[in-house]
Amino acid sequence: MIVVYSTDQEKFKKLSGFAQTLSDEVIGVAPFRDNHVKKLIVAKTEDLAVETISEQRPSLVLLSEGKREVTVGARVAARLNAPFSSSCNSLKVEGGKVVVERLGFGGVVKATVELSTPAVVVIQPPDSESREFETEIHEYEGKGKMEILNTKRQTSTVNLQSAKVIVSVGRGIGGKENVKYAEELAQVLNAALAGSRPVTAELKWLPEDRQVGLSGTKVRPKVYIAVGISGQPQHLAGMKDSGLVIAVNKDKNAPIVENADYTVIADAIEFCKAITEALKK
């Protein structure tokens, strides 16, 4: 039996569909109601999710990518005395073992890991069809070990995972006041605006949900334009699977050059201004 857990309704649906390709017996655990599984247990907090998932005694727990999911998954694994793997992008069952593929070392290395069952896996599932059911819903009540004083949902400013074109900004843009030149380029291309970790999490030139990279969102647009991004492994880990990669950088020796189809050796701001004008025509 497989338990699926996600705190995101869209991801929950996708994950349930994937789980149903592996087993007929799938139980969902989520903080919301949903009808893409036969049986759903609503658990509002991480503590409650850990309790109820562990109680099901599953042979496999699948969780979607996300910070809460990783936390819940690792805790469940400890409860079940089961191996755990996160950030996986493929999974198959072979001779009673679960074999996953994931990236490691900042995305430089692909690792194949074999887990004995029961196993707990955080995965970005392949696209699978998800059916709707007459779902049997249970509410899991209880008290956790931590008290939640308040939760602020920062308005999400972008959906990078579904963007077809992304213009991404790095430190090389020079300052917060210059981000607008990349933004204007993004607008004419109908692209999403993203940024590297320094620009988002550290310097706050852009909101944090726009971070592409190992600790941000992993994206795979048709076209990825990296403006003033040197190409640290942590950043590359988040954009390697993009279709076409175009970089704009002053430095011919920046690591991004090795990871781009085309690198324009130019000043980031001047280039953004000029190409935005050209594309408007």
């Binding site: 005395n81 089961a82 191996p83 755990f84 793997s85 074999v99 990236l103 490691g104 995305g107 430089v108 290395v109 692909k110 690792a111 194949t112 890991v113 074999e114 887990l115 004995s116 196993a119 390697k240 699977d241 990871n259």
Partner: peptide
């Protein structure tokens, strides 16, 4: 209870 089967370079 898990085993690293192999490590290969990952690049596109």
């Amino acid at each position: 209870s898990s085993r690293l089967v192999n490590l290969t370079p990952y690049f596109v």
